[in-house]
């Protein structure tokens, strides 16, 4: 373990959930990737900002969805949802769901990790369900 690796407690949280993970660090960022029920998630931290932790997932927008309607759906969720920020990346046509936290230690996240994953999962489900309803 690297001394500056403040995401180690997140590895324990992922293991608590019974999940497997991989690390993909570089000089600037600490990264963990993992899957749950086949869906991919990531955790990112920055070596120069140990108080910041981001947990997220990203999904491609369906081809028939217009960016404008995706942004409206994302904004509606941002108003209503706890924890999760939904963003539309125009060029990539991706929807990104993230939880960004300011912590003294990533240990603080461990007991709440399952709840945060649920929040990410539920927000993505609601986002795509809202888009499908708009198209119906």
């Amino acid at each position: 373990m690297n001394e500056a690796d403040h995401l180690v407690p997140i590895e324990a949280a992922i293991e608590d959930e019974g999940l497997l993970f991989t690390r993909d660090n570089d000089e600037e960022a600490l990264r963990i990737t993992f899957k749950s029920e086949g869906d991919r998630y990531f955790v990112v931290g920055y070596r120069d900002d140990p108080n910041f932790v981001m947990i997220g997932s990203g999904w491609a927008l369906p081809a028939d969805v217009e960016l404008q309607e995706a942004s409206v759906a994302a904004n509606a969720l941002n108003v209503r949802k706890k924890f999760v920020k939904t963003a539309i990346w125009d060029e990539e046509r991706d929807a990104l769901f993230t939880v960004e936290l300011c912590v003294s230690s990533a240990d603080e996240i461990r007991p709440h990790f399952g709840r945060l994953l649920d929040a990410l999962r539920d927000t993505a489900i609601e986002f795509f369900s809202d888009l499908r309803e708009d198209h119906a």
Binding site: L19, L20, F34, K35, S36, E37, G38
Partner: peptide, 12 residues
């Protein structure tokens, strides 16, 4: 086969 599938989906 089932164990490989579940692991492939991210679960121990």
């Amino acid at each position: 086969r089932i164990a490989r599938f579940i692991e492939g989906e991210g679960h121990r």
